[in-house]
Design a protein around this nucleic acid. Structure first.
Lengths: 232, 232
DNA sequence: CATCGATGATAAGTATTTGTTTCATCCTAT
DNA sequence: ATAGGATGAAACAAATACTTATCATCGATG
């Protein structure tokens, strides 16, 4: 379960988000002031920080700057900034200070969830720590985002790589299309198209897999897909 | 068949949705006023409530709040709110009040269906919760939708799996053919044919069963079928 | 701002499942 | 035992789900 720290003096919003994020397997914690927030970072070691710009004591930019300056303490904590106004200058300043993304208030909860997933994915911290099971014929180097199939490096796109990693985390689990979409895109994305099928097809192709006699990705008719690579 | 209650004073929209949802195995009922709506909830025990924000008497937020407040009466009924304007603030307020999702009008019917599915999925209305009795020689893993017969994984189609699960929920119960048809297809399906017999036959075959000396599925002549697997 | 690659949508083609028909066989009541 | 409806299962047909080629779109890159 992902731990999210929210630094925002609007207690109401904090509770709301806590409740909302819980639905997406994220545990949120709220700090009402920057000083409390910084404390909680050390204790909680959250996976992501949601930081409001308007804060008591000092503003969010200040906090962000501080966290980045003391990276020895706080690490490369991903930061999502919330700003009251959708002003472009805010955005640039925020990004320059090292925030990973920015979201103008008011925002849609769904949008927030989507961005959180994006950041977590991008920050790679996510991917490298994931528990990838060893599969015969496949060598994954998460730090390099590199996959070798029978000693040959594969040229995978972001989505293809993510899909493969997801499969390798749960060999023999049958994923429905919804599940895959949600895990890959981070939102309750609905499928009005064969996007997942297409993605699977492309990955299969690069893995040298055929749908009829699959070595890795098996189609489970009427349900979804299963990764069946022989485990080492 | 899922029961959906719609509280909306636009009768036209209600009829339209009722018709549309029927295609997705959802039976919709329309209440034109909040008071009628609340009454119908008690009677119908719907699986989901679609609630318009603009209503006579009191608005949708009020209704939502009331339902959540009286959860002892209404339970944790999932609520999908329809708002006239796609205003973000509305969304936040609604979520705060306990609605499970939001959909701004006008919306696409399929988008509605998608969100309904999401909510129902989230609210844990899942097949995996069904109470499957342990049967000697059969191992079922509902989360993976996998069945093992004497340690060997069976390759079952959706219908075959559903039929088997149904049987395993009620060992020794004799099902008539219409009963099976209704439980599997969720509607009062007319028996034009011997679809059930064929299905049973195919499942039997995969279970290694013979109709003469059945290990699992016994034919009750003139009545239907009984699952007789030895219970553990 | 033009290009390129990645991803999403569409649609034609293919495969699989599910329903129907059929007929041989089985059961039960005469 | 036999007639007549009920059942099993094979073969065929229809419906449904999947694959993949192709095109459109979007965002990144220079």
């Amino acid at each position: 379960m992902k731990q999210i720290l929210i630094i925002d003096d609007d207690e109401n919003l904090g509770d709301l988000l806590t409740q909302y994020l819980a639905r997406y397997e994220m545990q949120a914690h709220v700090a009402l002031t920057p000083s409390k927030g910084l404390e909680m970072i050390k204790k909680l070691k959250p996976d992501l920080l949601i930081l409001d710009v308007m804060l008591p004591e000092k503003d969010g930019f200040e906090v962000c700057r501080e966290i980045r300056a003391k990276s020895s303490i706080y690490g490369q904590l991903p930061i999502l900034m919330l700003t009251a106004h959708a002003e472009v200058t805010d955005r640039i300043v925020g990004l320059e200070l090292g925030a990973d993304d920015y979201l103008p208030k008011p925002f849609e909860p769904r949008e927030l969830v989507a961005r959180i997933h994006n950041i977590l994915r991008r920050s790679g911290d996510d991917a490298s720590m994931r528990d990838i099971k060893p599969i015969k014929g496949l060598d994954v180097d998460p730090s390099r985002r590199e996959v070798k199939l029978d000693k040959v490096v594969l040229d995978l796109t972001t989505m293809e790589y993510e899909l493969l990693i997801l499969f390798m985390q749960y060999p023999n689990k049958t994923f429905t299309r919804d599940e895959l979409m949600n895990r890959l895109r981070g939102i309750d994305a609905e499928l009005f198209s064969r996007a997942v099928d297409t993605l699977v097809s492309r990955l299969r192709h690069k893995l040298g897999d055929t749908s009829k006699t699959p070595r890795f990705i098996k189609t489970v008719w009427g349900r979804g897909y299963t990764f069946i690579g022989e485990q080492l």
